[in-house]
Design a protein around this nucleic acid. Structure first.
Lengths: 112, 112
DNA sequence: CAGCATCCTGATCGATACTG
DNA sequence: CAGTATCGATCAGGATGCTG
């Protein structure tokens, strides 16, 4: 790390405390969730649940709510029968996704 | 989200399960820790503890161990009196840091 | 200085069951 | 289909005290 000090002007004083966003992102499936919606676009609840085979509906529901409340996901509900709901990224969410995707892809690679 | 499908070839089947690395990164201070060592270089235990004002030594110690075991941090111990220990990023850790820094900086900005 | 061991609390997650 | 409610289990995190 003697070379390429990628960004020397980073502010560790502001970076270290766990902010709300980092706190949220550190919850289970949160980063994967954002990344997934970024990749596949507007996603229905059922699709998401299927993709994460081993997540309970309560946990998924909670995570989704948190992400919506944080302004990262937008929930679009359609008055149809049967009901249809879609989650998509907000503008903020997209920005986040742009940062998350390279990370997750990298993790995916080194885990093989 | 209609434009710039940043990477359409991402593999969600491999991405969704919580791998060991994502699991580790989702623990408290983990991402900040990697990022911090990336920024300031080899860091002593005491320095780290100081920067994260509100972390207990047990938690910090655990996180450090996990990161070392995961091959992200390297622990360098010097046989001096008083003892000196430095943590630095491994090659893998640096790669991780390269992905983490933009993320943390972005989070830092939107939280103001 | 740089931790580790222990105990304890509380947050988080999951299973199950039920609803608009 | 898309959740919510409740409950119990688990686990991570923090406080304290001690060590090489």
């Amino acid at each position: 790390m003697t070379e390429t000090p990628s960004s020397t002007n980073i502010d560790m004083d502001c970076l270290c405390p766990l902010g709300d966003v980092m706190d949220l992102l550190s919850r289970r499936y949160a980063m994967q969730l954002v990344c997934m919606v970024d990749v596949i676009g507007p996603a229905r609840y059922g699709d998401i649940e299927e993709t994460f085979e081993d997540v309970s509906s309560s946990t998924l529901s909670t995570r989704l709510d948190e992400l919506v409340e944080a302004g990262i996901l937008a929930r679009e509900q359609y008055a149809e029968i049967p009901p249809r709901v879609e989650y998509e990224l907000t503008e903020t969410g997209e920005e986040l996704g742009q940062h998350l995707e390279p990370l997750l892809k990298w993790v995916e690679e080194i885990e093989e």
